[in-house]
């Protein structure tokens, strides 16, 4: 096949996509290895054909919020699209010192107690682990994706997307997912409403609590 022919085919496909632009409902169910529904699993769907993405939305994206309530991050896991600003209000009456050494976003917001702090722009995809320097137990995650289709499973482990027809890669993320599941990509060709189920290949990591192993300190 000759090179000009190849381009022809690609352009036809693009036309086809635009042409069939009416959205389809895609329902995704995430279960563990035991087929029990998993909640709060980040599910995001990347379009194979990235050119279709609406670049205009970059600046207009609403600011996301990672609050601190009762000395915990709220929500624990926040998923945002790339280039989203996230504000870190403090709903507690005490001060927090939020920081991250994650490469996707390294920052610290030094001791503050006011509700309004300057929102920070997260414009690199990836995982940003949040901690509080004065409350070791506090941990929160910001997961930055480069797609408009993302969300977390509900209590039934379910999430629904409206997707234009096209080809997509479905991915999941959670801090406790094993690498195999973390790297999992499900390809999907959206041309009708669809319902699919993702079952974890491995059991999730156990939740980590630093205080469980610090028995030597408990003594005192």
């Amino acid at each position: 096949m000759t090179r000009p022919f190849k381009y022809k085919i690609i352009s036809v496909l693009i036309v086809l996509c635009c042409f069939a632009s009416q959205a389809k409902n895609i329902n995704i169910q995430v279960n563990d290895t035991e087929k029990n529904p998993l909640t709060n699993i980040v599910v995001y769907i990347e379009s194979v054909n990235k050119v279709m993405l609406d670049k205009t939305q970059l600046t207009d994206r609403p600011t996301a919020t990672m609050d601190q309530v009762n000395r915990q991050f709220s929500p624990k896991i926040l998923v945002v699209n790339k280039a989203t600003k996230i504000s870190f209000p403090n709903s507690d009456k005490i001060k927090h010192h939020v920081y991250s050494f994650s490469p996707a976003k390294t920052f610290e917001i030094k001791l503050y107690s006011d509700k309004q702090s300057t929102p920070l722009l997260f414009n690199q995809t990836g995982e940003v682990t949040l901690g509080c320097n004065i409350h070791d137990w506090m941990i929160g995650y910001v997961y930055v994706v480069d797609t408009p289709w993302f969300g977390k499973t509900d209590l039934q482990g379910n999430i629904e997307f409206e997707l234009p027809q096209g080809k997509y890669n479905i991915k999941i993320w959670h801090p406790l997912l094993q690498d195999e599941d973390q790297d999992f990509t499900k390809k999907i060709d959206v041309n009708s409403d669809n319902k699919l189920t993702i079952n974890l290949k491995e059991a999730m990591k156990p939740a980590y609590s630093a205080y469980d192993e610090d028995d030597e300190l408990d003594v005192y």
């Binding site: 050494f101 682990t129 949040l130 070791d136 137990w137 506090m138 941990i139 609590s209 630093a210």
Partner: peptide, 11 residues
């Protein structure tokens, strides 16, 4: 040393 104390990740 964990960068985030409550993280399971050891730096």
């Amino acid at each position: 040393i964990r960068l985030i104390e409550s993280s399971s990740k050891i730096k």
